[in-house]
């Protein structure tokens, strides 16, 4: 009798161990948590009159290789647009290493506040068998308008991790394609027909992001007082992070320096 009881206890222990085994779809559960957290964002706050600014420059120092020439021989239509070869825009610098096309954004500190997306669409153009802008920032759920200004067909193929992946062909002269992305992410965009075409669409839940200009400068405007993590992302050099504490009506100036 005593032995039997012991076996039963053993079985009970096994059952407990079994029930403690994590469920199989843990990755999908993680994605779900992420999305439900996004949905749980509370109602918007107005920034009030105390909002400040985070501005600054992004530079790269150290040896940079010269930009590569792009060979467009695969499509005569592209070749005709560029009698002299186009140079790669992966790394575009000015004097002093000022770096263009870096996304600077608040990565942490905005909390759960939700922001209505701007009414006007974010426009992503295919022009001269190249993307314009190469790096586009937009808010989640903002309308994205994709335009083909070229005399040749492009396929627009974003390759996201957390958003829906789609792939659409757009022949010359067609009307703009309207799409959107709902989750925060920096999404590589490719044209498989023209493999040299590379672009990025950065999607944020909030409006506090900027893309650096030719002179490497950026401005994050109307930022309410608070403690934030600010990140600078570049397609080749990766991510830099700085912490900033912003008080009312203040302008903080940051400098990000990539040292590849």
């Amino acid at each position: 009798m005593g032995t039997k009881t012991r076996y039963l206890h053993l079985a009970a222990a096994t059952a407990i161990a079994l029930s403690a085994t994590p469920g199989s779809p843990s990755r999908s559960a993680a994605i779900e948590r992420k999305s439900s957290a996004a949905k749980a964002a509370s109602s918007g706050h107005s920034e009030g009159h105390e909002a400040g600014t985070v501005s600054g420059t992004v530079r790269v120092i150290g040896a940079q290789t010269a930009a590569a020439r792009i060979n467009m021989a695969a499509d005569p239509a592209c070749l005709r647009i560029h009698p002299t070869p186009m140079m790669s825009e992966e790394v575009v610098t000015e004097a002093n290493g000022a770096l263009k096309n870096v996304i600077v954004y608040i990565s942490n500190g905005v909390g759960n506040r939700s922001f209505d997306p701007p009414k006007e669409p974010a426009v992503f153009e295919q022009k001269g068998c190249s993307y314009s802008p190469r790096v586009l920032g937009m808010q989640a759920s903002q309308s994205l308008q994709i335009v083909n200004l070229d005399p040749t067909s492009h396929n627009i193929h974003p390759v996201p991790q957390n958003n829906r992946e789609w792939n659409i062909i757009q022949p010359p002269g067609s009307s703009p394609i309207a799409e959107t992305f709902t989750r925060e992410e920096i999404i590589p965009v490719r044209c498989n027909v023209h493999p040299w075409m590379k672009g990025y669409i950065a999607v944020f839940k909030h409006p506090y992001f900027a893309i650096t200009k030719e002179d490497g400068t950026f401005d994050l405007k109307d930022v309410p007082p608070g403690e934030y993590m600010i990140q600078a992302w570049h397609e080749k050099y990766g991510v830099l992070t700085q912490k900033v504490t912003l008080e009312g009506n203040q302008t903080k100036v940051l400098e990000f320096v990539f040292k590849p």
Partner: peptide, 10 residues
Amino acid sequence: GTPMPSSSSA
């Protein structure tokens, strides 16, 4: 998931 695009709008 592949480079083959949709032609539905084209």
